[in-house]
Design a protein around this nucleic acid. Structure first.
Lengths: 223, 223
DNA sequence: TTTGTATTTTAGCCAATGCTAATAACTGAA
DNA sequence: TTCAGTTATTAGCATTGGCTAAAATACAAA
C-alpha cells in the first residue's frame, strides 16, 4: 500500500469515534485531528473516492471494510508500541502516547510482528485499550465507567480513556491503574464527585470528569 | 524544530557525499535520493534560504553549521536504530537499513537517548559506520578499502559501505563482517579480483565492486 | 412554519515537494 | 577557441493537505 500519515490518522479517528458511538461528524473529526472542518470535508471526499469510507454530504462518514482494516492496523501499531515503550524501553504510561502516535505510521510489518512476539502477543495496552489482533479482531474492553458503576461492589480497573499526561501521572500517584481493585463508596448526586476505595483501603474523591474516563470490570470476571 | 522528512533526507545525503569526498553536485544528490535533478535544484534553493546550506548555482552545496548539526542528528538516529534493531530486536544486518531509514525521522530525543543507553553508548553500527555522539563528534572509521590494502598484512574488517541486502547476506555467509580478521593474499592487476584469507584460513575471491566497499583497519590498532 | 443558530460545504488560496520539457551554462577535446 | 556533450536551471504543472471567508444546509425553538 503506502497511505499517507494523514489518511491513516483520519481513518483511525473515524474508527474510534464510530466505536465510541460519538458520531463521525465533520466537527468531531476536525476536533480530534485539530484541523478545520473545511479540511475534513475535503479529506472525506478523497477518502470516499479511495473507497475507504462512505460519505454523503451533511451525513457523516462510515468506514468501508477496507477503511476499517487500515484503522485497525494503525490502532494495533499504536497500542503495541505503547506497551513496548513501557515494558521494554522503560517509558512511563503518561509518555507512551505521543511517541506511539508518531511511530505507528512508520513501522514495518516485521517490526510489528517482532514487538508483538517480544510482548507475548498482548491483548491490552498500558491504558487498558484493547489491541486488535493481526486479523482484525478487537478484544473486549471495559465498558462501565466509574460514574456508572454500582456502589459497594468490587471492581477491577480496566481502562483509562483519557491520555493527558498530567492526569495519567495523577492517577498513577493515587493508584488508579488498570488492574487495581476499586470500589465505589458513594456517588454524590447530580453528577457530583465519586468517593472510591482502592487497595489498602485508601479512599479518594474523583471528580466527574475523571470518573467518567475510568472504566471498570466486575471483579469476578477477570480478563 | 520540526523539519520535514524530505529536508532531513537532503541534509543527510549531502553530509555523506561531502564526507566521502564525492562532490555535492545536483546529479549526485538526485541519484542518492532517487529524484530528478530539477527537484534537487529547487530544494537546494529552499535549504539555502533556510540557512541550512550555502548554494551557488552550478557550484554545488555546502552545509552550514546548522545543516551539519541536523545531518549528524539524523545519522545518529539512523545508526543507533540499526544497532538497536539488530541487537535488541533480532533483525539481521541486511534488514536494518530500510527500517532505520523510515524511523530515523520520527523518534524523539527521549527514544534516542533510551536506545543509546540500552546499547551502552555505542560508537559504531552493524555495518561499522560511526555513530556521531550527541554533541556531534563523529568517531573515526575505517578508511582503507580491501582494494587498497597491502598484501600479506593482518587487518580487521572495520566497515562495509554497501547496504544492498543481498550483498550483505552474501558477505555474512562467507564471514566478511566488521570485526573479522582478514588478510589480502593477492590482488589481480588492472583492478581485478582480490584473493583474501579469513579466519580459519578460509580463502575467498572478491570482485572489485565488493572489495572496494569493504574497509579495514590495521590489526594492531584495534578500536 | 418560520427563523435564528450551528454545522457543513464551497470557493479560492497557499506551501511543500515532486515531475517533464525546454533552456542555459559549463567543460573538455579538437 | 570553439563546439559537442554533459550537467544544471528554469518554467510550468500536479498533488497533498492545509487554511479562511462566504454560502448553503440542517435543526430546534418559537
Amino acid at each position: 500500500m503506502g497511505l499517507s500519515q494523514s489518511v491513516e490518522d483520519y481513518l483511525k479517528v473515524i474508527y474510534v469515534l464510530e466505536s465510541e458511538g460519538e458520531g463521525t461528524t465533520t466537527t468531531n473529526i476536525a476536533n480530534a485531528l485539530d484541523v478545520s472542518s473545511a479540511s475534513v470535508t475535503n479529506m472525506l471526499k478523497r477518502l470516499a473516492k479511495m473507497n475507504l469510507l462512505e460519505y454523503e454530504s451533511y451525513k457523516g462518514a462510515k468506514l468501508t471494510d477496507a477503511g476499517n482494516k487500515i484503522a485497525l492496523e494503525i490502532l494495533r501499531h499504536h497500542r503495541l508500541l505503547e506497551l513496548y515503550l513501557k515494558e521494554v524501553m522503560g517509558y512511563s504510561w503518561d509518555e507512551v502516547h505521543d511517541e506511539a502516535e508518531k511511530l505507528e505510521h512508520h513501522i514495518s510489518e516485521q517490526f510489528e510482528d517482532r514487538i508483538a512476539e517480544l510482548l507475548n502477543h498482548p491483548t491490552h495496552d498500558p491504558h487498558g485499550d484493547p489491541i486488535p489482533s493481526k486479523d482484525g479482531i478487537m478484544p473486549t474492553m471495559a465498558q462501565l465507567s466509574i460514574s456508572e458503576a454500582e456502589e459497594n461492589t468490587p471492581y477491577i480497573i480496566g481502562r483509562v480513556k483519557d491520555q493527558d499526561p498530567e492526569l495519567l501521572r495523577y492517577l498513577e500517584k493515587i493508584g488508579v491503574l488498570p488492574g487495581s481493585k476499586i470500589e465505589v463508596i458513594e456517588k454524590a448526586p447530580f453528577d457530583g464527585p465519586v468517593k472510591i476505595r482502592l487497595e489498602d483501603n485508601i479512599e479518594q474523591m474523583l471528580g466527574q470528569a475523571v470518573a467518567s474516563e475510568v472504566y471498570v470490570l466486575e471483579a469476578e470476571k477477570q480478563p
